[in-house]
């Protein structure tokens, strides 16, 4: 009896948490399909009396939304590719090779997290100007890499530490080169780690706001985060329905990626290769 009561209480609590988390998202979707005149009605309507996709249409055809979307996709994909490529090789080096200062190096990498990003923005901006890439997508890729890489390196390092040395050694004795062993054996084993690292990096770049705000001030290079804000929020007016429609569309790529990759994240391959 007591157990059942406990269970009910637990379930109620869990659903409460789900509700609190999900409600703003639901509200976002609902608002995005309400006609303008229904938005500020008092008392507010929960279910829209009339469903309209006019905001979506306006966003897509009358604003630079698609340009921002393209920028965000390029930016996040490029950052993810660079970060994962460098972090995978770097983590492998930190785990497998013996060289002086290896541990120190690994710890030093985390040092970047001790500094608030606001502190780093201006020096980074000056460096971008000096490199001649300021105000471009490339400058953002570089900036995002500086803070995504350390974390990715640590994440992958712990993944790679779980891969037995003997697997790589066996590949070497079997005739593979270092790189061959890396691609044939290490990479497939580290795949769940690489996928979660990619996911992390992609989401980080997709949602980043501060750097994008400071380093870029042209529509040609603006990602969604700053682009949408810039476009819809002015000092006098916030275009709520457009903002909500934009938010929905901004979330869709992440949801698709998550749905697609989730099974890789939970799939436990690697188990059973080595005994003992």
């Amino acid at each position: 009896m007591k157990r059942i009561a406990g269970r009910i209480a637990f379930n109620l609590f869990a659903w409460l948490v789900v509700f609190v988390t999900a409600f703003p998202l639901v509200w976002m979707v609902i608002t995005s399909v309400k006609p303008q005149f229904e938005l500020f009605r008092i008392p507010p309507t929960f279910w829209p009396e009339q469903i309209t996709f006019e905001h979506y249409a306006r966003l897509l055809w009358e604003t630079p939304f698609l340009l921002y979307m393209r920028n965000s996709l390029i930016l996040s994909t490029a950052t993810t590719v660079v970060v994962v490529a460098v972090a995978t090789l770097g983590a492998h080096s930190l785990v497998r090779f013996r060289y002086p200062g290896r541990e120190k190096l690994a710890q030093l990498v985390l040092f970047t997290y001790l500094l608030p990003s606001v502190v780093l923005i201006l020096p980074l901006y000056l460096m971008m100007v000096w490199l001649g890439v300021a105000n471009s997508l490339l400058s953002l890729v570089i900036a995002y890499t500086t803070f995504a890489l350390p974390y990715a390196l640590w994440l992958l390092r712990s993944f790679m530490q779980g891969i037995p040395d003997d697997l790589e050694n066996a590949a070497l004795v079997d005739g593979a080169t270092r790189m061959g062993a890396f691609f044939d054996v290490i990479l497939p084993q580290a795949l769940p780690g690489i996928i979660s690292t990619s996911l992390f990096t992609f989401i980080l770049s997709w949602n980043e706001y501060l750097y994008a705000l400071v380093l870029v001030n042209t529509d040609a290079a603006r990602p969604l985060t700053t682009g949408v804000m810039n476009m819809l929020i002015s000092a006098f007016n916030i275009e709520w329905s457009l903002l909500m429609a934009a938010s929905v569309m901004m979330s869709i790529p992440l949801i698709i990626i998550f749905a697609f990759l989730q099974k890789f994240l939970t799939r436990g391959f690697g188990a059973g290769g080595v005994k003992g």
């Binding site: 003997d166 697997l167 066996a170 084993q189 290769g273």
Partner: peptide, 11 residues
């Protein structure tokens, strides 16, 4: 070489 852990490629 035959390893103590066998080191078979799991995938």
């Amino acid at each position: 070489m035959v390893f103590q852990s066998y080191a078979l490629y799991p995938h």
